[in-house]
Design a protein around this nucleic acid. Structure first.
Lengths: 117, 117
DNA sequence: CACTAACGTAAGGATATGCTAACGCACTAC
DNA sequence: GTAGTGCGTTAGCATATCCTTACGTTAGTG
């Protein structure tokens, strides 16, 4: 539920170029670990370790099919990151419309737009 | 202009917890390097090095005022990242379809809860 | 001028990270 | 059973990262 630790893991996971590339590969289609590794120059175990990081960050799902493992991106993982980053820069600055609408409920309750912290 | 290298730098910069904390500190107000460092347990040079990373990633601006240096967050930097990440998961909108539709049901019933993962 | 304040920078060390080579495990076919 | 496939895991190494200590630089003060 968008904890601080979860976002730490997510940001750490996508900070790696290879892992972002993996996410793109399995974003719209399911791929085996071997198929993913075939897209890279590094060895297969290296990709396997990246896949573990992505699993622990809950950015991909793994499904066993015989001796193979099918990977697919988890949309919720990136959605959580999007919300976190959005809150990051809309906290104080009145910039985006989405936030204005979201805060409309608070304003209705009588709270003036206080920018503290 | 949202180059690939720029996003690499930006993601690397915000992957660090201390640097994210710095960004929060200078988000809505200008602070000196010393004031920023006072918020941390590590030494001042350590923060100075973090500030350099943030400058090179164009996430903050630095302004000289006498012997001090005033830092402030750059909204455009985070905006570029937002666009990049948005493109990241809107490339395969079909994968997000399930999540979006799940939320759409709630919205149709009269906007009970807008963003609740 | 010397002296201090507020910084940035460089050098070095401890730890984290990403990689390869080797191995182990589960599954399938024979 | 044995052999082979697909994949994860471990050990070890090279490099990157973050920190501290020491020094350099610039601006202001007496």
């Amino acid at each position: 539920m968008l904890t601080h630790y979860a976002m730490e893991q997510t940001l750490h996971a996508i900070a790696e170029p290879s892992r972002r590339e993996i996410l793109r590969l399995v974003h719209d289609k399911e791929l085996t670990a071997g198929e993913i590794a075939a897209h890279f120059e590094v060895t297969r175990p290296a990709i396997s370790q990246h896949l573990r990081v992505l699993r622990e960050a809950e950015l991909v799902t793994a499904r066993k099919e015989g001796t193979r493992r099918m990977y697919r991106a988890r949309p919720e993982g990136l959605e959580g990151l999007r919300e976190y980053l959005q809150a990051f820069w809309t906290d104080s600055l009145s910039a985006l419309k989405e936030v204005v609408e979201a805060n409309a409920l608070e304003v209705e309750r009588g709270r003036t737009n206080a920018s503290d912290r």
